[in-house]
């Protein structure tokens, strides 16, 4: 599945413009250091962290997309940085666990 289909099926909000790409697994963490150490390229990164350093970390790991969960407000500078680097930034009002369950049901993860 790619990010385009995922957005449609889970009604995620797309916060910036980017080229859609395929998803290979899910990684859940609210720590940049944990993500840098253990996330894999192509992962969908679920996090409640909204500080702008998530964008460089996502870019460095080369995740498929960052999904900010639990309806947390994303600062404008985080969105701007994501737009600048074309890092897919998505948003969901669902708590991380609920979103993870839905992803599992879709066969992702």
């Amino acid at each position: 599945m790619d990010t385009r289909e995922l957005i449609e099926r889970l009604q995620l909000k797309q916060l910036n413009q980017f080229k859609h790409r395929s998803i290979d697994g899910v990684f859940i963490s609210d720590m940049v250091s944990d993500t840098m150490a253990r996330a894999r390229p192509g992962n969908l990164w679920l996090t409640m962290q909204t500080y702008k350093s998530i964008i460089p970390a996502a870019n460095l790991v080369d995740v498929a997309a960052v999904v900010v969960t639990s309806g947390k407000e994303v600062p404008a500078e985080t969105v701007e940085l994501a737009a600048r680097y074309a890092v897919p930034l998505l948003w969901s009002e669902l708590p991380t666990f609920e979103l993870a369950v839905k992803l599992h049901a879709l066969g992702i993860g």
Binding site: D30, M31, V32, S33, Y51, K52, S53, P56, A57, L60
Partner: peptide, 15 residues
């Protein structure tokens, strides 16, 4: 530059 660290993660306050 932006350090790729988790600053303030053990704080209750946002960074």
């Amino acid at each position: 530059g932006e350090f790729l660290h988790d600053v303030g993660m053990i704080s209750q306050e946002p960074p």
